[in-house]
Amino acid sequence: MTESRDLGWIRSWATSPQMTDAVFADVTLRQEIRISGGGRRVRIRLTNEYGTAPLTVGAGRLGLATAGGGIAPGSDRVLTFGGRAGVVIPAGAPVLSDPVDLPVSALARLSVSLYLPNRVEACTGHDMPLDTGWVIPGDAVAEAALPGDAEPLPAWALVSAVEVLPDEPAGVVVVLGDSRVDGVGSTAGGGWPERLAERGVYVCGQGISGNRLLNDGLGPSGLARFDRDVLATPGLSHVVVSIGLNDIAVSFAPRVGPLADFLTMFPGEPVTAQDVIAGFRQLIDRGHDRGVRVYATTMAPYGGNDIFSPEGEAVRRTVNDWIRTSDAFDAVLDFDAVWRDPTRLDRIRGDLHEGDHLHGNDAGYQALADSIDPSIFK
């Protein structure tokens, strides 16, 4: 298998594209992004993949972010697309900006400003709250300081990846997952892939809250988006599969009260342990065909959450045993062992979850990142 990469483009940050209900017109979107690894040049990937009409970006800027939504002096760069200041992105398509000469260090915070002159109704983004994004009336891409009429942007919009040219050979780790990869329950940007990046790893978290491996529902299934979100990643060297618990939990959850209405968002027949394992084998084969290593995390507990059932717990343990013992994956990260309560093996330790017995808090996600030896990605 490939152990290193030439000095080509490396994806340093990414978020999985989704349909959002945001509507914009004649506004500037300013979003701050903390990349994982650095490089000497940068390009931005914009997405209209769920758009139903062409999307016009009238102007764009890139710079190093400062506190309060500002741009560091001397770092402001104009974004161009094929040499032009704006671009029309076809419905269903992404677009890459031209490379920008801007040296960036690992964990640098970038500011991306995009002016949208026309009405955008079907906006592709990522349904995860952020505290470092703003909507500004009119064309404000060149404003070094955040204008006073800026309003909070509730979720990621249009920007799906940041790529860099590194100064030395490197590979990127892409994590395919659900809400636990998205960092639900943590402060903004506090998920375990972000914490892993702080240990010198180029890493992209491709989590979708509520996502499943085998069936669509909240976003396309892991099997359906694997090529787009993972295998198409520039510089890909390792995949971490951290998905499947929602398949199991939804299959056996009690259909009573408000939970029954919630579960209607998850179509498809109940799955078995063998169904999930077969899905994992598909990802392994597809990853190995591209010459990348495929790792897995075990599924951490969820006892105490409304979606828990004894039947689902039995399947979770069966699949975890297979992950640990089958040697099907190139390596295993035992997140179940990190999070489980030694006195209640079906539950997360009380100090590691956000209160719902399903998602981590900042300490929980930090514990997952700390359990990983970064050398396994070399």
Rank of each mutant, 00 (worst) to 15 (best):
F226N: 02
H359D: 05
P342C: 07
G58T: 03
A145L: 14
G235A: 07
C123L: 15
T343D: 15
A140N: 06
A22G: 02
L64I: 15
I35F: 01
D216M: 09
V230H: 01
I277L: 06
D362A: 13
G350T: 13
P129I: 09
R41N: 00
S251H: 02
L231H: 14
E32I: 07
L218W: 11
G287K: 09
A106P: 11
I89M: 04
A155Y: 07
N320G: 09
A122K: 07
I35K: 02
A369N: 08
N361D: 13
D178M: 12
V271P: 01
F329L: 10
S179N: 12
Q274W: 00
V23F: 01
A93Q: 14
A108N: 07
A369C: 04
P73M: 05
A25D: 10
H357F: 12
A108H: 05
G364Q: 09
P342L: 12
R109W: 12
F329R: 04
G304M: 08
N361I: 09
L214S: 14
S36A: 15
E121H: 01
V87T: 11
D370Y: 13
V315L: 00
P90Q: 01
D351P: 06
R349M: 09
D334L: 06
I323A: 09
S36N: 00
R286S: 03
S97L: 00
R317L: 14
L146Y: 10
F266H: 06
A106T: 05
A367V: 13
G304R: 02
A369F: 02
P267Y: 08
M1L: 11
D101C: 02
F24G: 00
A314V: 01
A314D: 05
T297F: 08
L62W: 03
M265F: 15
D373Q: 11
F262H: 15
Q206G: 02
L214D: 14
V78M: 14
W156L: 10
G86R: 03
V135Q: 11
A22W: 00
G355P: 01
W13G: 08
